[in-house]
Each structure stands twice: as structure tokens, then as C-alpha cells.
Write a protein that binds this DNA or RNA. Sequence first.
DNA 1: TTGGGTGAAACGTATGATCTTTTGAGAGGA
DNA 2: TCCTCTCAAAAGATCATACGTTTCACCCAA
Lengths: 263, 263
Amino acid sequence: MPDQHAHRFGASSDAVAEVRQRGLSDALGKQIVTGALAPGSVLTLESLQERFGVSRTVARDGVKVLESLGLLYSKRRVGLVVTEPRAWNVYAPLVIRWRLDSADARATYIELTQLRIAVEPEAAELAAQRRSGAEADELRRLAARMRTLGEAGELEQFMVVDVAFHCLILEASGNTMFAALGDVVGEALHGRTTHGLMPATPMPEALDAHDAVAHAIAHQYPDAARKQMQFLVDEVRAALEHDAVGDAHLRAPVIPTDERALR
Amino acid sequence: MPDQHAHRFGASSDAVAEVRQRGLSDALGKQIVTGALAPGSVLTLESLQERFGVSRTVARDGVKVLESLGLLYSKRRVGLVVTEPRAWNVYAPLVIRWRLDSADARATYIELTQLRIAVEPEAAELAAQRRSGAEADELRRLAARMRTLGEAGELEQFMVVDVAFHCLILEASGNTMFAALGDVVGEALHGRTTHGLMPATPMPEALDAHDAVAHAIAHQYPDAARKQMQFLVDEVRAALEHDAVGDAHLRAPVIPTDERALR
DNA sequence: TTGGGTGAAACGTATGATCTTTTGAGAGGA
DNA sequence: TCCTCTCAAAAGATCATACGTTTCACCCAA
């Protein structure tokens, strides 16, 4: 199993990017988002060639990826400058993955969850207005399956269906920016069980709420859909606040690296 | 004025990317998001070299950018395959800009606004919990300035301050994913005046609500902050529904292009 | 009809050379 | 002493070319 996360966040350049270039952008990207390479740090193409044992072509390709993710920019006569976090594309699948793989995974998980809490009620309301017939059917089917699995205590499979349920609503909203958050919801739900925030068996109210959401969307009751979804995410919010140890602001202080200073 | 939108969405590779490569990724990217190049279309590096009069290096660099934005992927022996919209990084500044520059700018604007509506109340609540003293002061200052400009009917400047106000709240939320939506809010507000959805002079209730939000955040009343912000975005929502002509789903049907079929 | 082998297409990688921008240091003058 | 202006070096940007690698499509044989 070469990549634990390959099942999610696909499409971008997972199976495609060749291994040398990917290794470089992966390693560098991770270093940047973890803060090991502080904003303002300066690298050079040549140093990357040497460090990763690759040609200039590969080094440039890897850098190009990081550049388009906003993690660094290249400046003539200077080199490759690591960007400050506010410029990062934190919605890019690669960046999300790197952040989740790094030390402050918890803070990232909290941020993803907060985003999910904000978006899902709105998405449910929209979905109730624009869902197709097929989507309505599928939604009810998924809700029923969640009940079965939940009452049986099959947490793993339950989560899979749960993710599918929420993703479908995001898609049915008709807003591509909401739909694009399917991965975010997936990671948030995944993190919830990973962090041990899930009861051994899902609460009956949660199962009822899922049913209610599916019902409201199927019957095109936007207000009810929003309200029921709000109920669902409010529970998540409560769990989050009870659990809120990590602060998204926290980050180890690091001083910028300037390779030229080492010469 | 070579780029109308250069004032926003900066940082990524605006002033940095050299002109040849940028021209290529810009032109191609725009073609893809507008649908002029349908998903499944196949290009080759060689055709791009010829079409844009650039070397292989530049063509590859441009493609690399589009690839990391999820707009296409390259496949050996096949070429460059345009990806289906669901895989696009619709949160990437470049993609947002291209979508706004294209024909279905209206649909994009609606999506951005819906996202804003979803996120801002949550951000306001968080901001009320975690804002710094400086942020609280600045927020009240901005609200006051909005009142002055609003009552004077200075719509242009009003909008600038309005954007700053909302961006500051997103930042103060402490959630980097919320903070990253500053550009989205900026474009949404910009589009609101562009689409003529703004009254000649902002409604007094809106000015009051901005004051109330600033006050609630400054005094650390999360519930009030959320409620007041909800009031603000509910007005936006109302304007949006009243105006809802465009459907985000709509897109001109196009058949995939395969360059090889033309030979 | 089916199965496998084979060649070419197109991307991936490597390398060397040249162009362009930037900047820092040094020369020269006030 | 300090400021300005010039200039050369540094480092990325671009180009051209060559070779490696994978994948697909086609053909031939069973």
C-alpha cells in the first residue's frame, strides 16, 4: 500500500505524476505546510537537484506544482521563496492531505469540521430545491442503510455510507463549490472516528435526523432540510467544543532558512 | 490595463510567472473552464508548442499548472486529457478568476455568494470568541467608516471598506480555510455592485447590522455575532433569490475535441 | 473470433547553452 | 562620510535536442 490516502483526493495527479517529481513536491510541500521550512525561506533549483538527486527538469516540475498551490514562488536572481500561510491554497487536495499528514493534523481536522458545519445546512436547503428524482431516491436509500448499519454497530461501513450521504447532498445542491467539499466532509468524518469522537453506536437521534434530512430533501422542503441538517451539525459542533484542545493558530516558531547563509 | 483582476487573487503567480508560460496556462485554462475545450478532449504538448510558439519546456510548465489545478492530466502515449468539472480545484484563485472572466460569470458569482452566505455567520461566531484586541478595534473603525461612506452614497469606496470588514472577520475566525475565502467575498461583493443589485445608497438596516456585528465581536458575544451576520447575509440571499435567473448547472453542450481526429 | 506480440506515439527525463531580470557591490562624485 | 550610479554576477526562464518509458492500436497467427 504505497499511499494510504489514495482512495480520497484523487484526480489531481495521483496515479499520474511520475514518481521522481511527485516525491520532490510531496516532500517539499509537507515541509512547508508543517512549518519545517518557514515562510521567507529561500531555496534554489540547484540545491533541490542535489538534494533529491534529480535533473533540473524534474526539480522545475515539482516546484511548479508547489508554486501553483501557493506554497512558494520563484524570483529571479533570488531563488525559490517559501510563501506565508495566508497565500496557500488550503482547499487544494494536496495541501489538505499534507496538513492532515503533519503534526497539527488535529487543528486541520478542526478547521475542516468547522467548514463542514458552516456549509452543510445551506447545501441541504439548496438540495431540497434542486435535487433530481434519482438523487432523492438514492438519498433515502443511503439513510435507510445508515440506520441498518448504525443499529448493527458497524462503525466502519457506517462511516462510508455517511460520507456518501453527505457528499450526495453537497452535489445535489447544484453549487460546484459545495460539491467540491465532498473530500473535506470525507476527511472530517474520517477524522471523527479516528479521534475517537464517535460513540460506539450512533445516537438514535442522529439516525432520525439523517432520515429527516433525506425526507425533507426528497419532498422539497428547503426549510426543513436546513433545520434538520443544522441539528446534525450542531451535535458535531458540540462534540468539537467539548474536545477543543488544539488551537488552529498554534504553530511552532521557526526562523526562515536561507541556504546562501550556510555557504 | 492588461489584467483587470490583478488587484485581487494575487500571490499565487501573478507578478511572478513569466509571460510565455502564463499566457499559455491562462489561455488554455480559460478555454477549459468555459467549456470551449470539453472534458475528455485530448491535446498534445507538440500542438501547444506550435499553437503558442513556445518551447517544450514552457509548454510543459504551463500544463503542469493546469494539471495541479485539476483541469487536465497527462497520459503517456495519449496526450493531455481535459478533466471533467467535478475534479477541478474550484477554490483555486486562478480557476475562480477564469470562471468569472468567462461567459457564465453570473452562475459563478451566484455560487461564490452562496458560499459566502454559508460561511460568514459561522466565521462571525468564531471571531467573537477569538478575535484579538487590535482586530476588535479595527472592526469597529471599519464599521464606522462604512456608515460615513454609505450615508454619503460613495458606493465605490463603501464596497472597498465592506470587503475589508468581511475579510477581517474571516481572518479573526482563526480558521485558515475561512480566511482563505477573503477573495471569494471580495469578488462576491464586487459582483453585487457590478450586477446592479446594490441600492444607490446602502440600507440603514444593513449599516446598523454591520455596527451590531462589530459590536458583538468586540464584546465577545458569539451568538449575537452569528445572529447579526445571519441577518446581513439573509438580505443577500433574498436579493439572490429575487435575481435568480441563472442556473449554476447550465453549460453549453460541447463535444470533446480530439486533435488526432483532425489529421 | 480471439489472443498475443510488436512498433510507434507521446510523455518523462536529462543535459547543455543562451537569454533576461534582479540585485548587491563597488566606483565615483558631492 | 554618504549618496548615487553603473555594472557584473547570480539564478531563474527559455530553447533545442536526445534518449528513456509507457501505453495503445494494429496485425498476424492460432
